[in-house]
Design a protein around this nucleic acid. Structure first.
Lengths: 164, 164, 164, 164
DNA sequence: TTTT
DNA sequence: TTTT
């Protein structure tokens, strides 16, 4: 009842073609970075741009959508939650942290440019008809069970690699 | 994929004890108004408060939580979506509109004051153990199917009454 | 310190060319409606679209941006706050209400189609160089004073008309 | 016009008394961590809590409010933007990153417990009447110039320290 | 009244 | 590393 809130909203441009992985468990994972640029005026009244880079992650059906429709330069809107993963650096033995945003909802604001070749060459770009990319449940607040999140509990493979 | 976004976020105080109804279909409906107050300075530099009132609606499990834990004066945080219902005024024959926010997520920020009597006297206030109020599904982005929204499709009873 | 929150976020399509007014005080006002469409599945598993219409208002510099760059069909992202205006219906003497969203931040997601003629024919479309539309301060959280809101206090002309 | 969006919303509990610094430039900086906890069900249907920790930063007037009214355990609502700072680790020479959320708006949801002693013992806790803590500008979208953000441009001192 |  |  007294729930907390962890909500992130970004509208920006994708920095490079998303990287798609499939974990041993079958979970599909999409990783990419997103730029948000803000314009501001300095004390002299001159305009400057400042770009912030964000690391994004999506799982399963959302990862499929990203694999099929998102590429370098795409403008997207996402809603997600912030999470920080940690791991121990193998060479130094130090603990490292990576903060990322897990995508829970995504809207694509650019037409997909089919003339550009994705670098993962997975043959799934465009309106794929494969089972995987044909997921339902990509609508927020829909009556469809959101199994993606269920899968992350006890998911071991996702956590033991150096991120990005 | 190119989904739209309709999102409302309020943090404010409940104006009166919520009104709880059960539709013929069994759908539970909670209605109440919420005040959000903002402070601003006028041209003279003096502070003023301006209060805005919002009409909120919740269905099923969220309505149960509201029935059991929300009362006049409660401070709550909600996330929802804006929707406008219309009906024809029976006396004048004119079309009328009421804009409300359908609650999709709620956080209670006040302790429940059990010394105050709710006016609906439904015996469900406090930490109820009834089946209805013991709903799951009240967690945002959870793996639990969100049946509340499914029920609203083709729901006839909800639409044919003068609101509030 | 214990501030309330009244925040609305929409991503959708503009229903018609915005209506632009200038109040006697000089305040510029843009009015238009915005559609947000959500897709959902009914009990049969079939997809349906449900479109919600929202009434939007923008003042001064934001109204200038809308006059110059927004038209029927534009896809936009807005952040704003919900407010309900009331007036007394002159014929029936009854109190009427209109809930609208005051735009505080806007992002344009469609290129402006200069081949279509705006119906307000104000000669301000495109990259206008007039003083009015050349406002700064259209960036949220910027160091620029946001005079638009200041002007709304004690603004009489904005309130005495039947809306939309 | 085609602005990006970088927005973070948290509702959670403060992990420890905030650390307050004053930079050589006079900028006040508040640093603290915030926990957001979500409840979810695993495949067995059992409930678990997962807590995420977030690093928060506030500047100037918002830092003053935090210094005076926020302590370990406080429940707060914040709106801000995500930013990642980087520095070179002095011992290893490696580049390090820390993602934090810069607070742009804050609402305090707990009464301040004056019986607990803040560990920074700055004598400013409680309803301070000092000039610094009596800032205006703490209202979002207000007509007050938001000088805090202006100060961050070209701010050198803030960037050359190992964070947190 | 929009859009895909 | 994106975009206008």
């Amino acid at each position: 009842m007294s729930k907390d809130v962890n909500k992130v909203i970004f509208l920006g441009n994708v920095g490079q073609d998303p990287e798609i992985k499939v974990l041993p468990s079958g979970t599909r994972v999409a990783n990419f970075s997103l730029a948000t640029t803000e314009r501001f005026r300095d004390e002299m009244g001159e305009y400057h741009d400042r770009t912030e880079w964000h690391y994004l992650v999506a799982l399963n059906k959302r990862a499929d959508v990203i694999r099929d429709y998102v590429q370098k330069g795409s403008k997207i809107f996402i809603e997600g939650k912030q999470q920080t993963r940690s791991w121990t650096d193998k060479s130094s033995g130090e603990k490292r942290y990576r903060t990322e945003v897990l995508i829970l909802d995504i809207s694509l604001l650019s037409p997909f440019d089919s003339s550009r070749n994705g670098q993962n060459g997975n043959g799934h770009r465009g309106h794929s008809t494969s089972t995987q990319s044909n997921g339902n449940g990509e609508f927020n607040h829909s009556p469809v069970p959101q199994e993606a999140m269920a899968n992350t509990y006890g998911e071991p493979a996702y956590d033991d690699e150096i991120p990005f």
